[in-house]
Design a protein around this nucleic acid. Structure first.
Lengths: 185, 185
DNA sequence: ATTATCTATAGATCTATAGATAATGC
DNA sequence: ATTATCTATAGATCTATAGATAATGC
């Protein structure tokens, strides 16, 4: 095993556990156990719990440009979140509020994640305004979908078929994207 | 001091601290210090940390029917969240995902908060369908606004005037409320 | 020889409890 | 006499470190 594959396993474990339970609720021992090493190994490789946490933030927060369909981008964004739910995969949009709140330095974490998410979304929807006002509205709307589906357990497939949900929430999102730019930005 | 006012002070402190930092990050000592008592007093009155936590959930989660204006309910809902931000008050919509994730029994907490929020919103918007599909969409949208403004620090007043935000996000929300009921509910 | 990993443990919390003291009501 | 509150502390973690052992490359 190279140091690098050990590091990767530890970061993977950290990402899963911190994303699910937050900073304080997860111990070095928990991460070590999931990664298959001793707690001491985790400390040696990562330095400290805070550094492990910082390094465990999901790296590709929003996109994994799979098949670029011809569907409007608002629908695509919603579709990805619903698909991750249906496949039981972790949801960055639901994890990130937890990561920010629990971070050892909350102001810095908030700042970093905000600019990361807003930039990514602004690029995707083609928002070139100074404050990226529309991108910020879109981020709000997607945070809500992530938390709603994954933390609250809203709109389960049995109640609302995934395609109906994508169509409905996608329409809402797309209407934000297509709205004429407001005066101030 | 009657036992009851002590209890109230402790619950108030618990609500503030747990809402801001989550379960594991807050200690009995922290709550005691904020409430102005010894840790032992907190334990005596509340029984255990888990009971303190359960009792600290925000009790009036959504509404404090202040002035019932003639504004459509979607705008009113958004207005309240924006007003709480501008006054620097705590935001239940941003706290509740954290409370659920960190709760000692997460499934139970999710279930409880979901039904509480969905019921309240369904009542407010007059959703009488079986699954309260629309109410669930509204809850998602409001969760997003809460997290976006308070956890991410999006759409600050300097960038987007509060009234403009209320108008824009309110329009989105109101369009969900006014949409014709979908076929399946 | 060097790198990867572990065991053992120090030192600092944290929750919870036991028992003492101060305040209150009769 | 009873209730409210505190001090002191036991017992159980948790992070972090020191030093030992096993694996690898030369």
């Amino acid at each position: 095993m190279s140091e690098n594959s050990t590091r990767t396993a530890i970061l993977q474990a950290g990402q899963e556990l911190f994303g699910e339970h937050g900073y304080a609720a997860v111990t070095i021992k928990d991460v070590a156990a999931r990664a298959g090493f001793s707690p001491a190994m985790v400390m040696k490789v990562m330095g400290s719990k805070a550094e492990l946490y910082a390094a465990s933030a999901p790296s590709a927060p929003v996109m994994d440009h799979d098949g670029v369909t011809d569907e409007p981008v608002g629908f695509q964004l919603v579709r990805r979140i619903v698909a991750r739910r249906d496949r039981g995969e972790p949801e960055p949009w639901a994890m990130v509020p937890l990561l920010i709140r629990d971070a050892p330095d909350r102001v810095a974490a908030s700042e970093e994640q905000r600019s990361r998410y807003v930039s990514r979304i602004a690029e995707l929807i083609g928002d070139r305004s100074t404050h990226r006002h529309k991108a910020q509205l879109v981020v709000c709307t997607l945070l809500g979908l992530g938390s709603g589906l994954r933390t609250f357990g809203l709109l389960e497939t049995q109640q609302v078929p995934s395609e109906a949900l994508i169509k409905q929430y996608g329409t809402v999102l797309q209407s934000i994207i297509d709205a004429p730019a407001p005066a101030d930005s």
